[in-house]
């Protein structure tokens, strides 16, 4: 066997092994009906893919996650530029931001459900709540990291403050914002699912809750598999987008030998 294909052979072996173990455990009924066989799950998955409810749930999940991500990005960068540009604002917000940073959106989920009900707005609010702070923090770091020489040069060329912000500070903060977005995008998906699962917001989270409540374990597993694939796609897409948007920046430029 050639060394170059060996990793792939082992990967295939690993996947096949996991599927076989799953199938054997399920047919032996080690967990009763709660663990359906892999074959059943995959046939359920195929039939689920043919239903309209699945696609509308998928659409709701992706739509909410992306819309909230966009809102969080706009608001986060704006707040971050504000906080990063003025020392007094930075000190004023420091304690509040540091307190809220480690508080996940699931903590305020009961409040959101109480006020907004099990709606798409509730999911949107939670995702924005979860994604906003990391973006703000990174943008502040990016603004702080702006080369003072570049800033002074811009000023001596007679640029106005707004122009400096748009042409010097923002571009130099872009890689930081890019990093924040790469972390925030998968998180947005996760929070959308959580909002559906625990708060009854529309989307795949709600479908999972219904499948579990109805004891429809094959659908439950099928939906979780869909989420796994969706999560991978989100991660891949954000990495690609980051590289596309930031290809001009030093840390992303490809080295030409």
């Amino acid at each position: 066997m050639k060394a170059s294909i060996r990793p792939y052979a082992f990967s295939a072996l690993g996947i096949a092994g996991a599927l076989v173990i799953w199938q054997v455990l399920a047919t032996a009924k080690v967990a009763g009906n709660a663990l359906p066989p892999a074959t059943t799950v995959f046939s359920t998955l195929t039939s689920t893919l043919g239903t309209g409810t699945f696609w509308s749930a998928l659409g709701a999940t992706i739509g909410i996650a992306l819309l909230a991500l966009a809102l969080a990005a706009l608001a986060g960068v704006a707040i971050g530029l504000l906080v990063g540009s003025f020392e007094s604002v930075r000190y004023a917000t420091l304690a509040v931001l540091e307190f809220l940073k480690p508080v996940p959106p699931i903590v305020v989920l009961p409040l959101a459900v109480l006020v907004l009900g099990p709606t798409a707005e509730m999911s949107l609010f939670l995702v924005v709540f979860g994604c906003l702070l990391p973006i703000v923090m990174q943008t502040v770091d990016g603004v702080q990291g702006t080369d003072p020489v570049a800033r002074d040069t811009a000023r001596s060329y007679g640029m106005r403050e707004g122009e400096i912000l748009a042409r010097v500070v923002l571009p130099s903060a872009m890689p930081y914002i890019g990093t924040a977005m790469r972390v925030a995008a998968p998180a947005a998906l996760v929070v959308t699912v959580v909002a559906g699962l625990l708060g009854g917001g529309p989307g795949l989270g709600q479908s999972i809750y219904q499948a579990q409540a109805a004891g429809d374990y094959a659908s439950l597993y099928a939906l979780v598999i869909v989420l796994g694939v969706l999560g991978l796609l989100f991660q891949g897409a954000t990495r690609l987008a980051e590289r596309r948007v930031l290809h001009w920046h030093e840390s992303y430029r490809e080295v030409v030998p």
């Binding site: 060996r6 990793p7 792939y8 052979a9 082992f10 990967s11 072996l13 690993g14 996947i15 092994g17 996991a18 699931i106 998968p186 998906l189 996760v190 699912v193 959580v194 699962l197 625990l198 989270g205 999972i208 939906l223 979780v224 989420l227 796994g228 694939v229 969706l230 999560g231 991978l232 989100f234 991660q235």
Partner: peptide, 19 residues
Amino acid sequence: WMIDPLIHFLRGIPPVALV
């Protein structure tokens, strides 16, 4: 090589969905 793809797949699943 054996568990890398599995780990990446499992990581894609929102942790709460496993509950």
